[in-house]
Design a protein around this nucleic acid. Structure first.
Length: 424
RNA sequence: GGAGAGAUGGGUGAGUGGCUGAAACCAACGGUUUGCUAAACCGUCGUACUGUGCAAACGGUACCGGGGGUUCGAAUCCCCCUCUCUCCGCCA
């Protein structure tokens, strides 16, 4: 979330940026500012009373020790009155703070100046593209047909075991999943990311830290008995590793990676978007996360984009990189690049990665700070993350783009991990 | 799941009602000393909000796992919750 300071000190800028994100109730900004003024006023009054209360209490102690019971009794009486008044004030203060907080949490992150205007995916700006779109014969099949023919993914079986959107990978289909995971993790660790294997369920605090809670709990599976949430992305547990942490500036950037399954309810999705591997309730993903110095975070964002780009290149997939427009960005992001690969039989672009700089938006929720050598006060760090990469759509594109008479050709870089060159 | 013990600052750990935002030690940082290193000595050494001030700084309030209560006053007493440890049970 934004800090009060960001809002009060740059109100006009905040309003202008929120408009880019197409935020629908900018009145909140004014309400927040006036609530904050009110909060300060109440806090001052309340604390003045408490200071008085504390002072008298100390005096009572001294009087009692001196055996001056009568004066002590008088002082007690006085304190009881002050206490009543102070309780009223602090109640009011608490209410104000709660209201302020509930408003603050509703404001999305401010988009970076380079974010294009617009409100639909059509307004996203293509930054670059690469790879060759293969020319397939008319008889080329979409991946869900291929998966069936080669018996490598069983969607119906998943439906039997769990429900729609939970496929079962079989034989070489299962092996290629493992190969992709290993390939992505190797690439990430070679690029300096430290590998983690985090829990797949998180508590409420973690959900809040990265911005899924309180408003987006509908996206996550909720284990009500224990009040845990299945993670929708490794971003949640990995970023929360650094919740309530103060690091030295010299330790930045911190680079972390993790492979995890991801669970998403995807309520409301339907139609051809969800065919086959296009949209699942459970899928596998390798995520990269960085904790950065604010002065370096955009440089680091580019570095992360380069890393993800190198992955799709090595997999020989046709891709394009989009800079998301204000209206298509997530609540928490300041700047996002989406990666899409072309799935040649479906003849459509599929999103396989989203790389974002959250600036201090998550860090403020996480209380994730760094301290400069010479400075006393800790400062909010910047957090970034990106998929590197999400498996199902990558697999969809590999299956469709690489279909040949001999079978599905496995990209060269993956062969050492799969141990076979063709799915046949 | 049953029984018991515990949770204090970066770490160890003292503190059972007032003068404790918290001893002491260690770590860290700054300095003195030193040919260098080490040792020794001196100093600094939590976070948030907030007030005065250009600032440096100096005040106020809150925080001793979390929440509530008792009291003029709570790290200290009471209740609830969470977590950790030990023993038993169960178990990949």
């Amino acid at each position: 979330m934004l800090t009060i300071k960001q809002i009060t000190e740059n109100k006009e800028f905040v309003l202008e940026r929120l408009a880019v994100k197409r935020f629908k109730n900018p009145e909140l900004v004014d309400e927040i500012i006036s609530l904050d003024n009110n909060r300060k006023k109440l806090q001052n009054q309340s604390e003045a009373l408490l200071a008085e209360l504390n002072k008298i209490s100390k005096e009572i102690g001294i009087l009692m020790k001196a055996g001056n019971a009568k004066e002590a009794e008088q002082a007690k009486k006085r304190n009881t009155e002050i206490k009543e008044e102070s309780q009223k004030l602090s109640q009011e203060l608490t209410l104000t703070e709660e209201k302020l907080n509930s408003f603050l949490v509703q404001l999305p992150n401010l988009p970076h100046i380079s974010v294009p205007l617009g409100h639909t995916p059509e307004d996203n700006v293509e930054i670059r593209k690469g790879g060759q779109i293969p020319s397939l014969s008319e008889s080329a099949l979409p991946h869900w047909e291929l998966a069936k023919n080669y018996d490598i993914i069983d969607f119906e079986l998943g439906t039997k075991l769990t429900g729609a959107g939970f496929p079962v990978y079989k034989g070489k289909g299962a092996k290629i999943q493992r190969a992709l995971i290993n390939f992505f993790l190797e690439e990430a660790t070679n690029a300096g990311y430290k590998e983690y294997m985090p829990p797949l369920m998180v508590n409420e605090d973690s959900g809040f830290g990265t911005g899924q809670l309180p408003d987006k709990e509908g996206q996550m599976y909720h284990v009500t008995l224990d009040n845990f949430y299945l993670i929708p992305t490794a971003e949640v547990p990995v970023t929360n590793i650094f919740r309530d942490v103060i690091v030295n500036a010299s330790e930045l950037p911190i680079k972390a990676t993790a492979y995890t399954p991801c669970f998403r309810r995807e309520a409301g999705s339907y139609g051809k978007d969800v065919r086959g591997l296009n949209r699942l309730h459970q899928f596998d993903k390798v995520e990269v996360v960085q904790i950065a110095h604010p002065a370096k975070s955009y440089e680091i964002l580019e570095e992360m984009v380069k890393h993800v780009e190198s992955l799709v290149k090595k997999l020989e997939l046709p891709y394009r990189i989009l800079r998301l427009c204000g209206g298509d960005m997530s609540f928490t992001s300041a700047l996002t690049y989406d990666f899409e690969v072309y799935s040649a039989a479906q003849k459509r672009w599929l999103e396989v990665s989203s790389v974002s700089n959250f600036e201090s938006f998550q860090a403020n929720r996480l209380k994730l700070r760094y301290r400069e050598e010479s400075e006393k006060k800790p400062v909010l760090a910047h957090t970034l993350n990106g998929s590197a990469l999400a498996l199902p759509r990558i697999l969809a594109a590999i299956l469709e783009n690489n279909q040949t008479n001999r079978g599905i050709r496995i990209p060269k870089v993956l062969v050492p991990f799969t141990g076979f060159e063709y799915i046949d």
